[in-house]
Amino acid sequence: MISKNMENALNEQIVLEGYASQLYLSMASWCDAQGLEGCAQFMHRQSEEERMHMLKIFHYLSEVDAFAKAPGIDQPPHEFESIRALFEQVYHHEQKVTASIHKLLKIGYDENDHTTLNFLQWYVEEQREEEALMRTILDRIKLIGDGPQSLYYIDKEVQQVNAQAEAAEAAEE
């Protein structure tokens, strides 16, 4: 059993992960409307991944005899200034999620909650990978530029990144 404090904090993380899933789904729709099929596929994959992160915490709470709450999620934005602005927002959101995971770790350490600390180690590694991936994409966008002629190349680069990530995930299974 975990403390009420940890239970509440994990339920807040569920909301954050759920919002990320909806945000990335909204971004996928925007990318699709811009004709950026590779970026849309990437964002759909990211949305599913964030939903899985949310559900992983949801199930964990049940396993430790706590109560998981289905999140009420705010409407994410659906318009973005540019593909670069979109990926900058993704990167900043991932940094926010990382900071939240670190707060959960602090609670775990303060409360001597080794079970939750062990559970959260997966998220620590996952967030490192997510931030690195978004930085890579932003670096490529900066190199290519984000003018109208560059969008085709950005879309192909993101499509390639997506394919590599899918292949890595398949190799882990």
Rank of each mutant, 00 (worst) to 15 (best):
L25H: 09
R140C: 08
A165Y: 07
Q41M: 12
M134Y: 09
M27S: 01
H114D: 11
R135Q: 11
L120Y: 12
E125Y: 09
T136N: 14
G18Q: 03
A68F: 06
D155H: 07
Y91S: 06
V15C: 10
G145V: 04
S29G: 08
A132D: 13
K156G: 01
L23N: 02
L36Q: 03
C39V: 07
L120C: 11
E79H: 14
F80M: 12
E172T: 07
Q41E: 15
K142D: 14
Q159T: 01
E173H: 07
E63A: 12
C39I: 05
I2D: 00
F80R: 04
E63S: 08
Q95K: 15
K142A: 12
C39L: 07
H102G: 00
A33K: 13
Y123W: 12
R45V: 02
Y152S: 08
L151R: 13
I57F: 13
E130F: 10
M6T: 09
F67P: 00
Y153G: 03
L55D: 00
E125M: 07
L143I: 09
Y109Q: 09
S47K: 04
L143E: 08
L151Q: 11
K56Q: 11
Q121G: 01
C31T: 01
A99N: 12
Y152I: 10
D74F: 04
S21E: 11
I154A: 10
A163V: 02
A132P: 03
R140E: 14
E126C: 08
S47L: 03
H93K: 05
Q164N: 15
D110E: 15
K156N: 12
E12V: 02
Q95F: 02
V15G: 03
V64N: 07
L25V: 00
